[in-house]
Nucleic acid binder design. Structure first.
Lengths: 240, 240
DNA sequence: TTTATAAACTTGTATATACAAGTTTATTTA
DNA sequence: TAAATAAACTTGTATATACAAGTTTATAAA
């Protein structure tokens, strides 16, 4: 599967947690036991365990062991990068993506700032509506630098752009910065979404970067108020 | 300061990034150079750098080096655990905390679920309003298990509960799970906050855990729509 | 000069060892 | 029996070595 030893161990342990083989509140085997099970060194095991800890799956306690945390309490089980398609699949809800616009544009002032491009560069603009169980809930406006993404099609945008970017174009998406706030809904929101009586939308600005720290995508995701949820896991660093 | 070598190196590098000694887009010294500067081993340097990477301060690129990322683009520079006091200080805004309620209660059904306690246990209930530049913006409702926090006072709640818990009670706050959504505002919201014409509030549910993975605090933070902002940094894991 | 090759860098992974420090269990002592 | 001590566990930190793999720079060959 994965060539990385510690990543494949991370995966193996993660799937055992998700399948309930390791249950919340119980301890997973000690580092030394895992060393024997996976026939590897302790440092390699510790890399895998630290990843699990950072992502909120286990809590390591000095002298005692590693306790499985309860991730199930949140039915929206992510912080971190995940595509709409992956998410809908996880939640097991019926969903559909409708491509409303797909064109090449020149950036306006706002977009120049968001994507760090000049006025002459070509930008892919993709406007999509996310329908969940029949209701138009999310309006996604994606902007890609054409230099990085030379080709796009309606078909790709309907399926998963991320899958295309990573598998076909071999782009290595590395990290993203997200910004959340609430805004009065615009004419565009009212046009594309089933807004009911709501006067505001939740806006998620998403700046996505590649492996080499270059910004290549800016996304504005506009959610109907009542359907928006987000979950975050954070550790506190203690100095000393 | 801190006894930990790799944490103190992390801190040192972080402050150099924040002070602009290492500028966004430029490279920090290589691992081997840092080994010499800090007179330590490469693994120790790598621990510090990995922390910086996880928190979005640098991007490591194999074969090239570590690039400083631009954190300043967001003026709300955190994901992760941070107290209201710390945050207000960072933003340099005038702020005030008003303690509206401070009492010991028995948990109702909802609270029993949120704090994982039985009906007979004593719970500290703290209701505070956060005033920013004269406006009542945030309503914080904190609940602590009295077994963990035996004593609280109006004075402590006005200053910083976290400071009291960590410094006085020596509690080790380890991680938190946050949940964001939007809700219609309640009578209580209208009573305590300057809501203007807004009909909804942003609710942040915060479950805070100690070192031993025990849940000890549940907080509901209710923000006025127009003043809410949140920033998140997330890395994508690539298998293979 | 241009191109190809080699060397010298960079970070990434895997392994091994030693000791520190916290927790649990077994043993010894009072 | 009860308490103190010791041993055997647990995770945490620091160091060292070896090699892999990507990038840049210097060198050699065409």
């Amino acid at each position: 599967m994965s060539e990385n030893k510690y990543l494949s161990i991370y995966n193996d342990l993660l799937s055992k947690i998700e399948k309930g083989i390791f249950k919340p509140g119980t301890k997973i085997p000690s580092e030394n036991q895992l060393v024997e099970q996976y026939e590897t060194s302790r440092e390699t095991i510790r890399k895998a365990l630290n990843l699990l800890s950072e992502h909120g799956y286990i809590q390591k306690i000095k002298g005692k062991g590693s306790i499985v945390l309860d991730v199930r309490k949140f039915d929206f089980p992510i912080s971190g990068l995940i595509s709409f398609k992956e998410l809908a699949q996880k939640l097991g809800k019926s969903s559909r993506t409708i491509v409303e616009q797909l064109e090449i544009v020149k950036p306006d002032e706002a977009l120049k700032k968001h994507l760090h491009v000049t006025a002459r560069e070509d930008i892919w603009k993709v406007v999509r509506v996310r329908e969940i169980e029949g209701e138009r809930i999310i309006l996604d406006k994606d902007f890609f630098n054409k230099k990085v993404v030379p080709f796009l099609s309606k078909d790709i945008c309907e399926r998963s752009i991320y899958e295309y970017l990573e598998k076909e174009l071999q782009l290595k998406i590395s990290f993203a910065k997200k910004e959340f706030f609430v805004e009065e809904c615009t004419e565009e929101d009212r046009m594309y979404l089933h807004l009911k009586q709501y006067t505001h939308v939740v806006v998620v600005r998403n700046y996505v970067y590649l492996d080499d720290a270059s910004l290549f995508q800016y996304t504005e995701s506009r959610h109907r108020l009542d359907k928006f949820r987000f979950v975050d896991f954070a550790r506190r660093i203690h100095l000393h």
